[in-house]
Design a protein around this nucleic acid. Sequence first.
DNA 1: GTGCAAAAGTAGACTAAGTGCAAGATAGCA
DNA 2: TGCTATCTTGCACTTAGTCTACTTTTGCAC
Lengths: 207, 207
Amino acid sequence: MSLRERKKVQTRAAISAAAISLFIEHGFDQVSITQVAEAADVSRRTLFAYFPTKEDLVVHRFADHEDEPARVVRGRPAGQSPLAALHEHYLDALRRRDPATGLTDGPEQLSLYRLLRSTTPLMARMLQFNESAETQLAAALRETADTAELPARLAAAQIVSVQWTLSIANYERAVAGTRSDDAYPAAAAAADQAFALLAGGLSTLWP
Amino acid sequence: MSLRERKKVQTRAAISAAAISLFIEHGFDQVSITQVAEAADVSRRTLFAYFPTKEDLVVHRFADHEDEPARVVRGRPAGQSPLAALHEHYLDALRRRDPATGLTDGPEQLSLYRLLRSTTPLMARMLQFNESAETQLAAALRETADTAELPARLAAAQIVSVQWTLSIANYERAVAGTRSDDAYPAAAAAADQAFALLAGGLSTLWP
DNA sequence: GTGCAAAAGTAGACTAAGTGCAAGATAGCA
DNA sequence: TGCTATCTTGCACTTAGTCTACTTTTGCAC
């Protein structure tokens, strides 16, 4: 990696870090782009070269995950059902304490989560990531699981929204103060319950 | 209704109508708030007294529906499952050609749909309505169907996202030019399929 | 090391969304 | 007719985000 590239990565990280810590301390809309640029010691214009909008200063960290469900389904071993692959992958993410699951002890992760939840435009951006994940997952289901258009879209919608709900619940446990090792069994059980519900349907809930 | 109240309703409708027709004609971000205010013959400042943001000029029309699933579940006859009530209600909405189902012939409805789909911030607002609908539905399930916290949230997430997916699919058929009477059978079949999938689970899809 | 082209950063002016305030117009009511 | 509450308006202000032209820094050839 060249010096130029390393500097870009560094600058990008510095800007985002400055932004997030300011936002966490004072609130998203109490802090202006100009203040973030000053804190990161770059010009306002340079900041916009790295992040197209104020929201992106925060949510760019989650952008990588939007193709994850689709990748898992595409990469599953032959003979395994898409749902089983996603279930297994989610349990593994819990074991790895992947921050995306909400099962984490990192105080900065929890502050970040609180920031997201309390800031409408940030949540709006997160929901758009979900929509993108859904579209990509639907395509993967159509192409690798021989699923027709409508059922693929319906299934993708259900799966993505359920995973999102699980992660929110995990974050809420973490914010309530539960340590991740203590929360893990409940989180794994919740995941099992959620995937069982996806597989078996809501009629198991209300006979 | 007093003259004052009638005028307010009129003004509000006039502003929204002017906005939507301008947005449809020229695109959401090609039209400024100032132009909308001029077209509706009110001051810019008055416009903001009626609609807090530019997005609201369009999406306020959908704000009423965000408590609909919760209301349906709360108002269902004794002995009926929540899912059956929602299924029935959705089929009825299709029969009534409720624009929220996407099954409509109104050209202005279709233009509005195209506007929404092609405008990122408008879609973001719509997704937030879904989130609100989901929260309210989860509460209704907890309170009237004896459902625990987590399953209620999971079920609500699945149901809302599935209904949204159905309506998108219907709009797409309508945009493709299918008349609502011709599209109705397929739309009803799709709804049946979707609710069957919700009830029976994804394992019916991938055994 | 020196010079040069390309990439990155900066300054400053500009557009447009949204807010605060104070003054003017209008409906409701005595 | 006149008083009061509400609605409307004009104007100045803040901030996000863009455009253009200019300077600095980096990679590289010699």
